[in-house]
């Protein structure tokens, strides 16, 4: 088999069947013209080395075949910013989904399945990435060539957020963490409402008597925080009014958590016989109260930061 035939065979492999003959026929004619011209210039017939050099100069068969086909991109440059934004929201969704699963496992077994949480996050994030990328591939290479979706066609300058400082924009990661942690807490605090009776009866741990009076207050504030998170998802920037709400929420939750961290016990065994997975309720309570104290201090800091930012925005107007 001649070198040129091998090259044509390789090029045709990378071409769609309906265009294979037409393109390779023309490409072969062009290569033969070049070889003929080369032979004329030299005054003798070309060798296999000459053919090899000409083919090498032309390019790899896959590259050449691809250059004859319409350009295809996984995601077009025009759609890429929107693609990145959708991936960000996908991360929030995965966080929320895994937080719910983690919460349900914890309540059912008293077991903090951290490894399962991490592996679940990775697997679901990869799945979400593949799914979103697949959808954007179709949008980037629409059948017939006409765009199926133009995300930036309808916008109104008046609707742009009144943002002066970069920190006013609320990042997707920040939203994901806040929303999923609030949802997790919300589910944890309301588990008697949605758990079936048989599951409730088999729970190995529950809230201690000393912490129960605090739960409705905490549940109410966390519920309000969730609504606030949804508002932030819709309008992802800080304003003075939103910062005021955030400061109040942070302060209230901080006070509640700091008070609860002073309690002797947050959780207690429910009396159900276990297989010994709960190592020590005392140790768990120490970890939880230390955690509540740490989060309480962090929320106090956030409250202070919100107040400082309100002051910054007041100066700007």
């Amino acid at each position: 088999m001649k070198l040129i035939d091998r090259y044509m065979s390789a090029v045709s492999f990378y071409l769609p069947a309906r265009r294979r003959d037409e393109i390779t026929r023309e490409l072969r004619a062009n290569i033969l013209d070049k070889l003929e011209n080369l032979a004329e210039q030299r005054g003798w017939a070309v060798t296999e080395q000459d053919v090899s050099a000409v083919l090498k100069e032309l390019g790899h068969p896959q590259q050449i075949a691809n250059s004859f086909l319409p350009a295809q991109q996984l995601v077009t440059a025009e759609l890429f910013p929107f693609y990145r934004q959708v991936l960000g929201y996908g991360v929030i969704f995965v966080f929320v989904l895994e937080s719910i699963r983690f919460g349900v496992v914890f309540l059912n077994s008293g077991h903090l399945a951290i490894a399962a949480l991490l592996s679940g996050l990775v697997v679901k994030a990869l799945l979400m990435f593949a799914l979103v990328t697949g959808v954007f591939y179709v949008l980037s290479n629409p059948p017939g060539g006409d765009p199926l979706f133009k995300p930036y066609q309808h916008w109104i300058p008046e609707q742009l957020p009144p943002v002066i400082h970069n920190w006013q924009r609320i990042g997707t990661g920040e939203q994901a963490i806040e929303f999923s942690s609030n949802l997790f807490l919300f589910l944890l605090l309301h588990y008697p409402l949605f758990m079936p009776d048989e599951v409730m009866a088999s729970l190995t741990i529950g809230f201690a008597a000393s912490s129960k009076p605090w739960i409705p207050w905490l549940a109410a504030v966390v519920g309000f925080s969730l609504l606030f998170n949804m508002w932030n998802l819709r309008f992802s920037f800080w304003t003075r009014s939103k910062l005021t709400v955030s400061a109040v929420l942070n302060l209230v939750v901080a006070i509640l958590l700091l008070c609860m961290s002073r309690l002797s016990a947050i959780i207690a065994e429910s009396g159900v016989i276990t297989d010994g997975r709960i190592v020590s309720i005392d140790l768990a309570n120490k970890v939880i109260t230390a955690g509540l104290f740490g989060v309480g201090l962090w929320l106090l800091f956030q409250c202070g930061r919100d107040l400082y930012r309100i002051w910054q925005l007041s100066r700007a107007f």
Binding site: K34, N37, L58
Partner: peptide, 19 residues
């Protein structure tokens, strides 16, 4: 045809590779 077009462009000073 393909090769003659390339020659004509080259002669005019527009160098373009066949690929």
């Amino acid at each position: 045809y393909g090769y003659s077009l390339r020659k004509q462009l080259q002669d005019a000073g527009v160098d373009i590779d066949e690929g």
